[in-house]
Every structure is written in C-alpha cells, then in structure tokens.
Amino acid sequence: MLWDDYAGAWSRLHGGFDPRQANFLVRGWVRIAYAVGSWLGRHRVGPMAVTTAGLLICFLVPASVLLLDRPGVFLAAVLVLAAALADGLDGAVAVLTGRTTRLGYVYDSVADRLGELAWLAAFWLAGAPGWLVVTAGAASWLQEYARARATAAGMSEIGVVTVAERPTRVLVTIFGLLAAFAYAPLITAATAVWLALAAVAGLQLLLAIRRALR
C-alpha cells in the first residue's frame, strides 16, 4: 500500500484527522508506523498480536517497580515507551494488511484502558498517594467513556483533540517515572499533572459534546 493510500485509510479510522496535514512530530510518527507496520505485515504478524504484545508489556510496568524497586522505576519508563510503540503499530498493521475489524477496534480500546491502569498502578507502587492515583485514573476513564457515548449519539469520533489524549498520557507517564527515578517524591507531582490535564480535557470534551449534540 502506498503512503497516500495508507494516510487516507488512517484518516478515516481517526475521525477524519489527516496525518499529512499534521505537525512534524505526528506526521513523522505515522510515517514510522507505516514503515514498521509494512515490515510486520510482510512477516504475517497480525494486528491483534501486536495489541496483545503491547498489553503484556504494560503489565510488566508495575511488576518492574514492585520487584526491582528504584531501578525498576527506570525500567518501567522504558517499558511504557515500548508499549506505546506497539500501540501505534497495531492500527498500522491492520490498515496495511486489510484486517481492520470492529472486534479489533474494541479490543484495542480496552487494551489501552487496561494499559493505563497498569501505568497508574506503577505510579502508586512508586509512592504516589492512592487517592490521587485513583482520581487521576477515573478522570481519564470518564473522558474516554463520555467520548464513546457521545460518538454513539452522533458526534464525530474525535469531537475535539484535548490536552490529555493518549499520547500526552504516555509522555506524562514516561517523564513522570524518569523523574521519580531521579527523585522519588516527583511521582506525586507527575500524578497531579495527569489529573490536572484530565480535568482540563474533560471540560474541553464537554463543550465539544454540547456543541455537537445540542
């Protein structure tokens, strides 16, 4: 599949957001996913296998913190990066191999939420207060749930690109764990940043839903 064909298919699966018109970082990442996804497709690696691999890596994140203590915090950051790469590749493989399915879409969404739950569990194991971790997770889950229900009610799939989309949560997790590796109490600050961004994102999404469905 040529790049333009892939970009068009990718756009249709992401609420009409065209990666060819995105900023340098987003466009570059989608091109990398296209190249690696093409290689995986040629070697008959299916999209669900990639999603499952990413989810298993996510489960290793809190395990590394629990079993390895402080060195495990650094390893956890590396594992989150690997999981994020896998998360970006499963959709590319699905498009490039013509294996996009509704079941795969649901599985990918569930895997994303479970993966984020594992990351937040690592925050807690690294020393963040339990109440703050739970609140941050609930805020993110509420955002995704509200978007899903609004989409079912007729809003376009994305509605609005908020300040706390999944790529942002990935970055907060990676840099939060790296900061905690350098100075343990910073994990609480990272959790607070996650919560603050989720709160702003919730307001952005609420306004977009109101405009789209009223």
Results as ranks from 00 to 15, higher is better:
M1W: 08
A7N: 05
A9T: 06
W10C: 00
W10K: 04
R12K: 13
L13Y: 07
G16H: 05
D18K: 01
N23C: 07
W29Y: 15
W29M: 12
R31W: 15
Y34M: 04
Y34P: 01
V36D: 04
G37S: 03
S38K: 12
W39Y: 12
L40S: 10
G41E: 08
R42L: 15
V45W: 02
P47M: 10
V50S: 10
V50R: 11
T52D: 10
G54N: 12
L55D: 06
L56S: 09
L56G: 14
C58Q: 14
P62A: 06
L66A: 15
L67S: 13
V78G: 14
V80Y: 00
A83E: 00
L85C: 15
A86I: 00
L89N: 07
L89F: 08
G91M: 04
V93P: 03
V95E: 08
L96P: 06
L96M: 03
R99D: 07
T100W: 12
R102E: 14
Y107D: 11
S109H: 15
D112C: 04
D112W: 01
R113P: 04
L114I: 08
G115M: 02
W119R: 00
L120K: 00
F123D: 01
F123T: 02
W124F: 15
A126R: 00
A126Q: 02
P129S: 04
G130L: 13
L132S: 08
V133D: 02
W141A: 14
L142H: 13
Q143Y: 12
A148N: 05
S156W: 08
E157G: 03
G159T: 07
V163G: 05
A164S: 15
T168R: 12
R169I: 00
V170M: 07
V172C: 08
I174Q: 02
F175V: 14
L177I: 02
A184T: 15
L186P: 06
T191A: 15
V193T: 13
W194Y: 15
L197R: 02
L197W: 07
V200M: 11
G202F: 06
Q204A: 04
L205C: 08
I209T: 13
R210T: 12
A212F: 09
L213P: 03
R214Y: 05
